[in-house]
Nucleic acid binder design. Structure first.
Lengths: 341, 341
DNA sequence: CTTCTGGTTGGTATCGTTAACAGCTCGTCG
DNA sequence: CGACGAGCTGTTAACGATACCAACCAGAAG
């Protein structure tokens, strides 16, 4: 197994110094065309490839051209779309993406962030779990740029790209109330996650605005999978006073709910998904654009890496309530169907 | 903005040499407890974190504890599941994952692989696009371990974890033929991709085994999105002699097809997906297990990184044809419905 | 003929860490 | 009481590249 050639091997082969090889390899000016050609021939002959590890160590700015992306779980379609969009922007800018999953576990989140900074990434894009931001603050103080996407990190002074989760859910639950529902179930992921805290707040605000007492037995937090959501909604529906409408806090939970929910119960899901319009009834959703969210976050991050020192921004992207049918199933509060079924 | 503390800063703070700091930071034996405690206090006080870039450069084995994962497109749910499973195994083994997308573009594939090897990753997990494996062979010769997952790389001598795409599609198309279909559409991604070449071969083999002449107008290659698939199937159905059954080569294409396919046309999709059982009719699928595939690939890779030099293996994981209804819609060849509808 | 300029090229130190080895301080044993 | 080994700590030289500066060589200018 041939070992990797070094610059000095290329230099020997081409009969020049390593400095000249360095200049040619990095496309710097000031090398005679004949010399450069000889070096290039040697590079090809030996299959030389610059060692970016050594390079990063020596360079003045120490840029690694690598950013870290910590998501909750890449298998989640929303996060997958985010990851894909970020990789795309990074690729266009000649950067690579290190990926890590927190699985909503603060301990694992710390491990992942520490591993990122130990590798001296230029920046971090995070969907943070709640909690202790000491590590992030220290990374930030040492020059690592940070952007939060989809979830804010209260108490941390960083660029953040999110949607108005509170407002979107308040409107969606208001929509259900307008269709005659008074007992509405809420299914969400961990309440410590900013996004779900906001969505739950929106749910409560809509009920309160309509003068409906919130019934805590209709609410389930901490659901991490479709199976969790299916169990939760089954349990809620089996109760003496079951809800007539249900809101699922994200796409993954919606999949679980849809496997068990009777078609008579109204339903709205946060996040649009591929087959929403093909189901019976078609599923009303709160749509957001993960690609736009992620692209915006990536652009913010690269701006910071390249020296933008303006105050942290919070970008709020729009959501859209798409009525398709499931969210317009009338509730007991309206004796007659509304104008739209 | 405080700059990052070095080992020498910690050494000065603790009143010891950098070697002692190195030993403490790496948990090596042979440091007096009192000294270690002083160093640890200094580490905490300064917020020191080891620089893995410098460390990797100096260490004898040069392991970066980083592997590169090149998928076609992380936004694809199948690839997202693969990425998630690989990240999970890597995390358990104290490794990180660099991610890159080829988007089925051989040029971009080369760029991504080159960026991985320039960063001196310990290993690569690839879903390769067709073609030229010179770069991969050279990376391999220089000690980078390589494993292919979901797609084989003919001509490259590496561990490979795949399913029997040929056999699975042959059985699925045979299933459609057994239900009376003779005109069956095939929708696939680029034929240069090994997996789709195999699936298409399986399609042709099933037709041929039943003595049916393959009609090339029923076949579409190179479909990269649900929208592509929707257009393709619409066109095929508008032809004078439309198919009575359709096979979609993967999940993403299935989503597109299902948005436009009349419920009278039989349908089978490669890959199981979340709402397949909730559609009308429920969708018959060829299920495979992306998590098992990826986990197996990751284990193979880490075994290689840790010195396994046995001959390259090819692991073939099972698929399962799950009849749910859409694939059992009878065709014109059976005047009476089969025993199952 | 000397000096200067601009275009090339090379030498040396260094990035932050670890490998290898050297040296110091004890306590202990012959 | 001197030597020895165990335990601990420090010194030096890399790893593979780039930053910085010095040196060289034409040809042009004085």
């Amino acid at each position: 197994m041939a070992s990797r050639p070094r610059m000095k091997d290329v230099a020997a082969e081409a009969g020049v110094s390593v400095m000249t090889v360095s200049r040619v390899v990095n496309g710097e000016a000031g090398v005679a065309p004949r010399t450069a050609a000889r070096v290039e021939a040697a590079v090809r002959k030996l299959g030389y490839q610059r060692d970016d590890v050594a390079r990063q160590l020596r360079r003045t700015n120490r840029l690694s051209q690598t950013v870290g992306l910590m998501v909750d779980n890449v298998a989640d379609p929303f996060m997958a779309a985010v990851a894909s969009a970020i990789e795309d922007v990074a690729h266009r800018r000649g950067n690579m993406v290190l990926i890590g999953s927190s699985r909503a576990d603060p301990h694992r989140e710390r491990e992942v962030v520490a591993a990122f900074t130990a590798r001296r990434v230029d920046g971090l894009i995070l969907t943070p779990v709640a909690g202790d931001h000491r590590l992030l603050r220290s990374a930030q103080a040492q020059g690592t740029k940070i952007v939060c996407v989809d979830r804010a990190a209260p108490g941390l002074d960083v660029d953040t790209v999110v949607v108005d989760n509170f407002g979107a859910v308040r409107r969606a639950v208001g929509h259900l109330i307008a269709h005659g529902h008074r007992r509405i179930g809420y299914l969400g992921d961990k309440r410590e996650i900013w996004t779900f805290a906001e969505r739950h707040r929106g749910y409560l605000a809509a009920l309160s605005a309509a003068g409906i007492d919130a019934d805590p037995t209709l609410v389930r937090h901490g659901l991490r999978s479709g199976a969790d959501a299916a169990r939760a909604v089954t349990a809620i529906l089996a109760a003496p006073e079951p809800p007539t409408a249900v809101l699922a806090g994200n796409e993954v939970l919606a999949f679980g709910v849809l496997a068990v929910l009777p078609a008579t119960v109204a339903f709205i899901a946060f996040d649009d998904f591929a087959l929403a319009a093909q189901l019976t009834p078609p599923v009303t959703v709160i749509a957001q654009d993960p690609v736009a969210l992620a692209t915006s976050a990536a652009h913010l991050l690269f701006a910071r890496i390249h020296g933008d020192t303006s105050p942290p921004r919070r970008v709020v992207m729009p959501t859209e309530l798409i009525p398709r049918g499931s969210g317009e199933i009338p509730g007991p509060g309206t004796p007659f169907p509304t104008h739209r079924r």
